[in-house]
Amino acid sequence: MNRRGFLKLAGTVGATLAAKKAKARDNDDEKEEFVGVLTDTTRCIGCRTCEVACAEAHGLPVPDVQNDGALEAERRTSDTQWTVVNRYETDEGDVFVKKQCMHCWQPGCTAACLTNAMYKTHAGPVIWRSDKCMGCRYCMISCPFEIPKFEYDSWNPKIHKCNMCWERLQEGQKPACVDACPTDALMFGRKRELMEVARVRIYNHPQKYVHQVYGEHEVGGTGWLYLSSVPFEQLGFRTDLGTTPYPDYTREFLYAVPVVLFAVPAFLLGLRFLSENEEELEEGESHA
């Protein structure tokens, strides 16, 4: 019997629920291919139109891209900016990189979330649902890219991160940033198609690109993909994250839980009856 089979049999709450989840995930996979975005950093001119479009689409403060000088220092996404463009000085000159949630195939954040407030939709985008979140910030601990951001200055704080414009996708539109990009640096589509496009570009311009698509395998594959002319380390990407999906790191522990819930009590009872002092308990108890 394989592990999943075992789980389904196991009669504990935890086990049943875990099995249900595993099943649900399988069905989702069959339903739809995940969508994503391909960012070609060689096309990006650092105009930050995407930042503006994102802020407008989500009711966040719109940056003054002409005058705020934000390209001077490396920025991270924040609770008011779901996406940021950074400039990197590289061997190939300045390169601009847009940064946002990677929409992992198997996200650490959703595996961490104990209320499924962080949620991987069947279409691929990873979204946050305010009615469920309790603000524990475990998603922030578990995201390999440190993307979820928390409102520390609110009595009713939200988690902020890119949701790939889930509300627009449901209406059949593309993400706001993709629509806004004047140089077609961003391309929206199914991951398989995006990977094909990326490979064709590398194939046609083997001198121009490094022969790697960031996000193809990183942490088990992500929805957001990147092409680059320089090694990704030079663009602030972490290249040491490995290809193991993050939830896998806790999976073994979680699989052990139903086993422990069965085996340990049985073991303890056995021990208890082996230790000769069987009567002791009741005796000790009554005048304890």
């Binding site: 989840k21 961490a112 104990l114 209320t115 499924n116 469920k132 475990y138 979680l254």
Partner: peptide
Amino acid sequence: NDFGYNSVLFL
């Protein structure tokens, strides 16, 4: 609302 069964924190 909901059970995050695959979360260690849930456990």
